[in-house]
């Protein structure tokens, strides 16, 4: 589920951090820049794991800050394809199930990747799996489930423009469609051992 990635980055240390030991200041600035952010084609960065090396730094004319080239390892959330993860059902819709794992919310199980013979019940707001003629199992909201990662999708998200009247009008029109997340995971839930944790105990 987690991995370390080696990256190199140019970090700006503002003057008010010069009193800190260099390594701590670098770590802090790296965390400010990368924590809780998606790195395209990589995954969700959690924090700096360790610093491999850094150079002595450069000053630029007209700027009191120091620029340091750093090589470090980041702790990245990036499940591999086929990995089994535990999560909680956040939302059931006719299209599938949305999973929540607390720190990352863009995991989706489309209906095609659910168990065979499952159907969505609008009244109960849950997916129902008819295992055989006698047994029906429910996938309810907030249920703890196992699922398998099938695919990861990275989207380039453009920065939001300033909020002027034009933009607000556009937002009103486009409120129906949800904004595509920069990093989304498609999961499946159709083999033995998947689904609610309580089924298999």
């Amino acid at each position: 589920m987690f991995q370390l990635s080696l990256i190199s980055d140019l970090i700006r240390i503002p003057p008010h951090l010069f009193n800190l030991p260099r390594e701590i200041a670098i770590k802090q600035e790296l965390n400010v820049k990368h924590s809780n952010k998606i790195i395209p084609k990589l995954g969700l960065a959690i924090s700096v794991y360790d610093i491999i090396e850094y150079d002595s730094g450069l000053f630029k004319p007209g700027d009191g800050a120091m620029y340091i080239q750093v090589t470090c390892r980041l702790l990245i959330f990036k499940p591999f394809i086929g990995e089994i993860i535990t999560g909680w059902i956040e939302k059931c819709t006719i299209d599938g199930i949305k999973i929540n794992i607390g720190f990352f919310n863009d995991i989706f199980i489309p209906k095609a990747l659910l168990f065979e013979n499952s159907s969505f019940s609008i009244d109960e707001n849950a997916w129902i799996w008819k295992m055989d003629d006698d047994t029906t199992l429910y996938l309810d909201v907030n249920e703890k489930i196992y699922f398998r990662i099938e695919e990861e999708i990275f989207t380039n998200v453009k920065p939001k423009g300033p909020l002027n009247n034009d933009n607000i009008k556009k937002d009103d029109d486009g409120q129906q469609k949800e904004q595509t997340p920069p990093y989304a995971l498609i999961a499946s839930c159709q083999t033995d051992g998947m689904g609610c944790c309580s089924w298999w105990e």
């Binding site: 987690f2 991995q3 370390l4 080696l6 990256i7 190199s8 140019l10 990589l42």
Partner: peptide, 12 residues
């Protein structure tokens, strides 16, 4: 920012 190595190690 430059990614030198996508996957250095897996972490449990």
């Amino acid at each position: 920012m430059k990614i030198i190595q996508h996957q250095d190690k897996l972490i449990s």
